[in-house]
């Protein structure tokens, strides 16, 4: 019996194998979309619980990894939309946030950890567009569809994110 069939049959050990194979990719996506590791961990739990409940609807048209990724992406997008609605925080208001003062100019290569931290500090709105476009590789049309924004807005948000990152990483 293959892994998915064993998961559907309720074998927790098989589900753990599925988790071990895909958790890092989905956790990384969730952390970057949410902007914090703590929220990313909560999202990861919700994503795998949802996967466990919905495995019956997996038809095998795509790989289980692709199915899980789409499920995770949709869950992250729901979370981002709901948080934005709750907090009523627009990107424009965050643009004035003094905490985004650029750091002193640095010439050393960008370290991964510094970039991860800087991405976490990006304002909501441009962070999600940046993660989807520059990190996950979606084109602007796809980003626009996923986030429910215009294609031009996707471009400007991604550009804005890069400008913020320049400042946060001491590149200007």
């Amino acid at each position: 019996m293959d892994l998915v069939a064993r998961c559907r049959a309720g074998e927790v050990e098989a589900f753990e194998t599925l988790y071990r194979e895909h958790a890092a990719r989905l956790y990384t996506l969730a952390c970057r979309m949410a902007g914090s590791r703590e929220d990313g961990e909560d999202l990861l739990q919700e994503i795998f619980l949802q996967a466990y409940r919905k495995l019956g609807s997996f038809k095998g048209d795509s790989s289980i990894g692709t199915w899980l990724y789409r499920l995770a992406l949709n869950h992250c997008l729901d979370y981002v939309r709901s948080r934005r609605a709750k907090m009523n925080k627009l990107t424009e208001t965050l643009d004035a946030d003094a905490s985004f003062e650029p750091t002193a100019r640095r010439e050393t290569p960008i370290a991964r950890m510094d970039l991860e931290r800087a991405v976490e500090r990006l304002p909501e709105g441009c962070r999600e567009a940046f993660v989807l476009h520059d990190v996950e590789g979606f084109d602007h049309k796809e980003v626009a569809d996923l986030l429910g924004i215009a294609e031009g807005t996707s471009k400007s948000q991604v550009f804005k994110a890069r400008m913020k990152l320049r400042g946060l990483l001491g590149r200007r």
Binding site: A23, R25, L44, Q45, R112, L115
Partner: peptide, 22 residues
């Protein structure tokens, strides 16, 4: 440079407790 660094970003492993919670 930012685009290059972004392309090099790796994956992060979730903490061990994440699976236990699930």
């Amino acid at each position: 440079e930012i685009l290059r660094a972004t392309a090099d970003l790796g994956l992060q492993d979730p903490p061990a407790r994440a699976w236990t919670r699930i």
